[in-house]
Design a protein around this nucleic acid. Structure first.
Length: 310
RNA sequence: GCGUCGGUGGUGGAGUGGUCUAUCACAACAGACUGUAAAUCUGUCGCCUUCGGGCUUCGUAGGUUCGAAUCCUACCCGACGCA
């Protein structure tokens, strides 16, 4: 059995049941004599103390399967794809050394692909001072600047996308230009399994899940993240930047919106997020999609995985 | 019953004689994605289309006008006030 350089990816929109399925897969593999370890690919689950709002898997739910990339950093700090890529590369090396198989499981497509495709990101760390300076300018000015500095890159970025414009300028300032993102041959052999649900079913699941999270104490969690005594003392601004439940929860706790409004807006925002995820995932046509409600579909996924590892 | 205000596209809400299929926001749908990616950004959004354009909309029915979502009349509906 050759597992070196093989990666199983389990992806899908939020609320499709990825985490559970990943554990199922790992347990199944164990039964047929293969040890697997799960690597989370979730841009928010990397943060400590963000559990309910991110739907982080619990120790019990892991059922003894090793999990990585959960709770790796203080939510005050900004963690990026580049950090993720480096951390996971290391974990992958260890996993292969142990002779086990990695299962990358999560909904952050950008993170998954950065690892799996071996994307070469420009070696330019964020420069907060420069960013603050540039942020003062209008997008129009920034766009003009970028056109002057790197016409190629400018043509690929929408002139209204301030975040991207700033980052591009930041790269140009140290590298001279934004390097071509070569599509290097992926160092890995990858099987992507995608979990899917019909729109209406997913919308409903999102709704139910949000209410369940409220019951579990989501608001308390957000409140304590904000509190300097119990938690990390995250500013409201930071919480808002973390998005979805943290953003709207923070707005509600500040009294900027009512609880009803929060729940209503969150439902549509989470749905929007799910659709954005889908747009990303659809790009890779090789992904094997299964309906996560159907037991035989899940079994089909297991068979695909078994074949892949042969 | 009388009076006042109001009825605009899936929703909220502009527009008060021509440049109106009708600002804008939301929702809906599609898409982008080089260190914020749960973020950031774009497009479509009455109907038909051979993508040139064609056809029909602003409570309903009439009318005025070269021309009406916009003015007039009647009616219907809603809110408030007076009875």
């Amino acid at each position: 059995m050759e597992t070196k350089n093989k990666i199983i990816v389990i992806l899908g929109q939020t609320a499709t049941g990825k985490s559970d399925y990943a554990v199922e897969v790992a347990l199944y593999l164990k039964k047929i004599g293969i040890n697997a370890e799960i690597i989370s690919a979730d841009s928010r689950q990397v943060y400590k103390n963000m559990n309910i709002g991110t739907g982080k898997i619990t120790k019990k739910e892991m059922r003894g399967v090793p999990h990585h990339m959960l709770d790796v950093i203080n939510p005050k700090k900004i963690y990026t794809v580049a950090n993720y890529q480096k951390d996971v590369d290391k974990i992958l090396k260890d996993i292969y050394k142990r002779g086990t198989i990695p299962i990358i499981c999560g909904g952050t497509g950008f993170y998954i692909d950065a690892v799996v495709d071996g994307t070469i990101l420009p070696e330019v760390p964020p420069d907060e001072t420069l960013r603050k300076e540039l942020a003062k300018q209008t997008t129009e000015q920034l766009y003009k600047t970028l056109v002057k500095l790197d016409k190629n890159r400018a043509s690929a970025i929408d002139k209204n996308n301030k975040v991207r414009l700033i980052r591009a300028i930041e790269i140009v300032k140290t590298l001279g230009k934004v390097p071509q993102l070569k599509a290097p041959k992926s160092p890995f052999e990858v099987l992507k399994i995608g979990l899917a649900l019909p729109d209406e079913v997913l919308k409903n699941k999102i709704k139910i899940r949000l209410l369940a999270r409220m019951k579990k104490g989501m608001m308390k969690e957000i409140e304590s993240l904000h509190s300097p005594k119990q938690g990390f003392g995250l500013t409201w601004k930071r919480l808002e930047a973390l998005g979805l439940e943290y953003r709207y929860g923070a707005l509600c706790l500040q009294g900027k919106i009512t609880k009803e409004k929060m729940l209503e807006e969150l439902n549509t925002e989470i749905w929007h997020y799910a659709k954005r995820q889908n747009t990303w995932f659809k790009r890779d046509q090789k992904t094997v999609w299964i309906d996560s409600r159907e037991i035989h579909e899940k079994a089909r996924g297991l068979m695909k995985i078994k074949e892949f590892l042969r």
